[in-house]
């Protein structure tokens, strides 16, 4: 059980790392938000699940934290994206593609 918990935490950390890599590699802000949101949400959920396996008596609080992250993380990302879109930031396109 403790081993599984540690593996889950490692997987979570790995997804967070991939999210950070996505921030560096993606060409524009919308794609960066996408990489950041998804990877970090899943990464933190994995870490929380791992902590829950290591400390079984913490799980009610961990469930509350996980629900909070699941509800607020996408709302925050959408709010940032909406503000950007409304202030006229247009998504990046590959060179040579026509504006549709």
């Amino acid at each position: 059980m403790a081993f599984l918990g540690k593996v889950l935490m490692l997987v979570g950390a790995l997804f967070c790392l991939l999210g950070a890599l996505g921030l560096v590699r993606m060409p524009d802000v919308y794609n960066r938000i996408q990489a950041g949101t998804k990877a970090v949400t899943m990464g933190s959920l994995c870490i929380i699940a791992g902590v829950g396996l290591l400390h079984p008596d913490w799980w009610p609080k961990l469930v509350a934290v996980a629900l909070f992250i699941l509800l607020t993380n996408p709302v925050g990302s959408s709010a940032i994206a909406r503000a950007l879109y409304r202030s006229g930031v247009r998504p990046w396109r590959k060179a040579g593609e026509e504006e549709s």
Binding site: Y30, I33, Q34, T37, N73, P74, S78, A81, R82, Y85
Partner: peptide, 9 residues
């Protein structure tokens, strides 16, 4: 927002 490759703007 949390599913493959899409973001609600």
């Amino acid at each position: 927002t949390l599913t493959p490759g899409t973001l609600a703007v």
